[in-house]
Structures are given as C-alpha cells and as structure tokens.
Nucleic acid binder design. Sequence first.
DNA 1: AAATAATACAGGGAAAAACCCCTTGCGATA
DNA 2: TATCGCAAGGGGTTTTTCCCTGTATTATTT
Lengths: 217, 217
Amino acid sequence: MQYKIAIVDDHILMADAIANMIGQNPKYRISFKAKNGKEVQTKLNSPENVPDLILMDINMPIFNGIETTEWLSLHHKDIKVLALTMNDDELSIIRMFRAGAKGYLLKDASSDELLYAIDSVLNKGFYYSDFVAPIMMNSILSKTKEANAQNILELKDKELEFIQLACTEMTYKEIADRMNLSPKTIDGYRDHLFHKLDVKSRVGLVLFAVKKNIIKL
Amino acid sequence: MQYKIAIVDDHILMADAIANMIGQNPKYRISFKAKNGKEVQTKLNSPENVPDLILMDINMPIFNGIETTEWLSLHHKDIKVLALTMNDDELSIIRMFRAGAKGYLLKDASSDELLYAIDSVLNKGFYYSDFVAPIMMNSILSKTKEANAQNILELKDKELEFIQLACTEMTYKEIADRMNLSPKTIDGYRDHLFHKLDVKSRVGLVLFAVKKNIIKL
DNA sequence: AAATAATACAGGGAAAAACCCCTTGCGATA
DNA sequence: TATCGCAAGGGGTTTTTCCCTGTATTATTT
C-alpha cells in the first residue's frame, strides 16, 4: 500500500525539494503541496487529495501551522500531522502537540531522520525526536517553565495588548493614554507581567515577545 | 561539461533535499555539503571538492554565510556564491552582495527558479530575483534607508558588542563592567547609537537589533 | 442571598536606571 | 596643525521599577 503525503510550507523551495525526495520512495506519493492553512482547506475539498500524513511548517502567513493543525484535528482526524519546522522553542513544540501533531521534527534533521519519522508516525502513531523529547520532559518536570508556558497561552487580551505596546518606543505614560488607563494601572500590569513571565525589565519583555512571536517585526 | 555545486546550510534536511533535487539534473554534480563556513574551508582543502558554485545559507553557527562568502572572495575567487536563505531583510541582502555573492534567492522561491538562478549565475555571472531587485533599488534610491544601512554595516565591533549586551536584561552599569569601560562611556555609546540608528529608547535599540538580525534569539 | 475571594484599577512614595547634553584629555591620522 | 574618534566625566531630567495600600467590581463559594 502506498501512503499519500502532503507538504505544507510557505518556503516553496523547501516543499519542492522535500516532495521530490519523498516522491522517489515508492512507498509514498505526494498528494499536494500548500503554502498555508487556507490552501490546505481548499485542497482537502477534493477527496482524492486527502493524505495520510501532512508535513507541517509552523511559520506561515494567513493561517499558521498551529492553527491549521487544530483545524485538522477537528475536521480530518485521520490525517496525521508531523511538524517540520525551524522553531526550536518550547512554546512552539508544546502548542503544536496540543494542537494535535503526532511528531515534531526540526529542519536541521537529516533526510534519513525525516523518512524514519514519517514511517514512525504512520505506523506507530507518534515520533518524538531526540531533540524534542528532552524539551517536553523539561516542560513537564520544571514547574516554573510549565507555568510560564501555561501563562503565555493564557495571556489575557489586555495583557497581550500591553505587551505589544511595550514593544514600542512609547513610554508607559503614552501606553496608558492609548489604553485609556491610568499610568498607575499600567504600572500594575507591568509588575504583574514581569513576575508572571520571569523577566526583569522592559527589555526582557520585548525579548520574550519576540521569542514567542507575540509581536511581528 | 558538468558543473560542480556545493551546498552550505545548517539545516541538514534542506541541504539534503536540495542536493537530491539538483543531483537529478545531469548538468550538475554535488561536490559537497557543509553545515557552516568552517566545514567549507576544510572541504576546500581537497582540490577535487572545489565547486563552481556554492549555494550559501546565511544563518549558521560558527561561521555564517556572510563571513564565509567574504572568505571565499579572498581565497577562492572562482567559486561563485548564490545566497539561498530565509533572510528577506535589506541588511542581509546588501551585506551578502558586498561580501561577493553573485545572486540572492529566498527559500520560498520555487525549484524552477533555483535551477534558473544557478544557471544564470554560472553563465551570466549574476542573478537578481524579482524579490531582491526592488529592495536593492530601494536601498540605492532612499537616502535615509541607505544611510541607515550604511550605518549598520559600519557598526564598529565595540558598538555591535554594546548592542548585543543592550539586548539583555543587564543594566548599563553591568554592561560597562562587562566591557571594561566606565558607565559614562557606555552612556556615550548609547547616545551615539540612538542618534545614528534613529531610535528613542533601549527598546527601540532591541527592536532594531532583532530586525537586522544582529542578535540571535 | 450573603459571605468570601479574586480581579481590575488607581494611588503614594522612593530608589534605581535610563536618558540627554556638554566638556575634557588623549592619541591617531591626515 | 587641525580634525577625528574614543574614553571619561559633570550634572541634570525623565522614566522605570518596586512595593505597599485601598476601593470598586466581579466570581465563587457557602
């Protein structure tokens, strides 16, 4: 039996090259390539396109890999998602697995590992690379880090808005104006977030936001 | 005649997949793959490895694509460098061309464009993609942007070090200690850079550094 | 429904850090 | 000699950071 595999990556070259490589193996057939989640939804309208496994990038315009995986978990439970991305941060990994990914592979893996991972996800239903496994462990074991990850996922809208404005050359007074709050309230927001996210200064907050992709550059 | 092509990319999967794709074309042969500039130098010690063209990533540990290209321009003038990277920012493009690259291709290009670009660099000596051309134009036409770019390129080592430390939760006092300078000197560095880079606060400096890829996250 | 807890908002006050401009000395350099 | 860049300092204002208090409003529990 031949497995059908789809590739979702806005880096067309990457998608092409990997499709080409996988297509050489008679076990697999490429069912489609897509540049974002929107395209995935369109492609899946044709039943003959529905793949067994999707190689999913995370950073994509319009509809990112996490959102797309969440959508697939709801509407196409049978399609297995193997994350294939550059994002090596804890949050991406946790989010992707929560969204329903069955495996997680970094783009600096070898082609052998990719083929092994695909095989593993298709037959065993999961694949945790040597890179991902310790990070997940760490996230489970370390209370603070897990708490952090929780909190990030549960950042309230106001907090998120504040962070985005803090990643700006505005002073807190200006931020307060913009958010129609007293500077003292902003003071409280800041203090609260500093503790919650374990940063010591506004610079730390900015770095956090950049790392976690809360702001776009 | 068969051209020899090398691929330099720390994303092994990317390198593998592209090598595989290019290798299918009888016009080309893969002479080697490397994960960073250091490995390139080693590989080039064997004369049979010396390629006609190198596909060069930018973000790599140890010895990045710009440094590697500079080194190649000095020691292996005959090898043509075609940048193949995700970096779509002006600074990366300008730096890469200054370092001696003959072409610049984004990783979200199509495989057709890659093959065309390789062909173009080998035969015509250059390749400017539709993406890169307007950015270069822009950089030449727009005075302020060019001024900025200039300044970035002409950042002194000390300034760069300072920026990197400023993108940290260290206070300026701590930065001064680390750099073995008086806090007052750091004061001067900061003021100078704020004006030079047209930012108003340390947050602005951090954002600048992130945008220009001066710091790694 | 009443008591209680958590949350959002706002303030006071103080110490630390960041920010700004201006000056000086010193050595390289042109 | 004149100019430039680096290092350092003087002295000031503004902003940030921290901690503690208090009062509504909203949830939760009893």
